[in-house]
Amino acid sequence: MIEFEHVSKRFGEHVVIDDLSLRVDDGEFFVLVGPSGSGKSTLLRTVNRLVPIDAGSVRIDGVDVATQAVEPLRRGIGYAIQSVGLFPHRTVGENIATVPRLLGWSDGDTRARVAELLVLLKLDEPGIADRYPDTLSGGQQQRVGVARALAARPRIVLMDEPFGALDPVTRESLQASLKAIQRDTATTILFVTHDMDEAFGLGHRVALMLDGKVAQVGTPLELIRHPVNERVREFVGGSRARLRELAVRQVRDSMRKGEVADGDAIDGGASLQDALGAMLTQGRDRLPVFDDGQLAGAILLADLVASRE
């Protein structure tokens, strides 16, 4: 559990974080989203004390980070950044093993963990552990960066726009990997991005930051359906917010059970946006839904258009 309580930070005259309070629960995928200069990266970096705060407190499991020795604190928290920052003179394996080595793990444990992470992050080209970072593609480098952040099984991982510099296809594949890993390990992830789609796609809860304050915090659906003010509505997408909503909601929640339809079936776990895409592709206004290994019902265009709670 990470708690920010009345946190303030200024650089010179410029107030970056303004009396901000926020709570991130254990096992939560929490996304800080906002335009550049909104203070989201700075807030993230107060957690591992890369940025010292001027007022307030940041607590992890009730303990103020300011009272902890800085290096052990950082070794207990995973950290991944957009520019990756792999050490060019160390192999992929050595890069991933950085924190386990700092923590004094045995060679056997470290090697086993590196092997495990390579599989987990789909870095499964033979011999990749012994290659140097400059021989990898951008996507592979970021996979190594994420693996390095996860190496010592931290309970908390901080990620600062880790997928910001990747092409859309690579980015989606990495988002999927990260989402699965988070679900399986119940790691608490605090994730910074300026991309609304990424925020809504990944986060259990999302905090929209504007001018050093949290403008609104809630689940993606809450932000889309009930923006607290005009600025939040604008950032969530204005009239296009409904498209985002389709992307956030799953087919199985809106299907009509037991009904039948012609056409290629769509998976119950897919998003309503996928369903809409499939209808447009197939030229149909209703599609069969395949869920739990059987045909479970149908999804109707009319329901997508009308779907408000």
């Binding site: 591992n48 890369l50 800085v70 290096e71 052990p72 604190l73 950082r74 070794r75 207990g76 928290i77 950290y79 950044i81 520019s83 990756v84 920052g85 792999l86 050490f87 060019p88 003179h89 950085t98 924190v99 700092l102 960066g145 390095r148 952040a149 901080l158």
Partner: peptide
């Protein structure tokens, strides 16, 4: 030493001495 590698080293919890001996000196 690339600035991002330095930032990552600090973020992962290297002390100033470890940064010097493990990253800056070899590079």
């Amino acid at each position: 030493v690339p600035a991002d590698a330095r930032e990552a080293a600090r973020g992962l919890g290297m002390t100033r001495l470890q940064l010097l001996s493990r990253v800056q000196l070899p590079l």
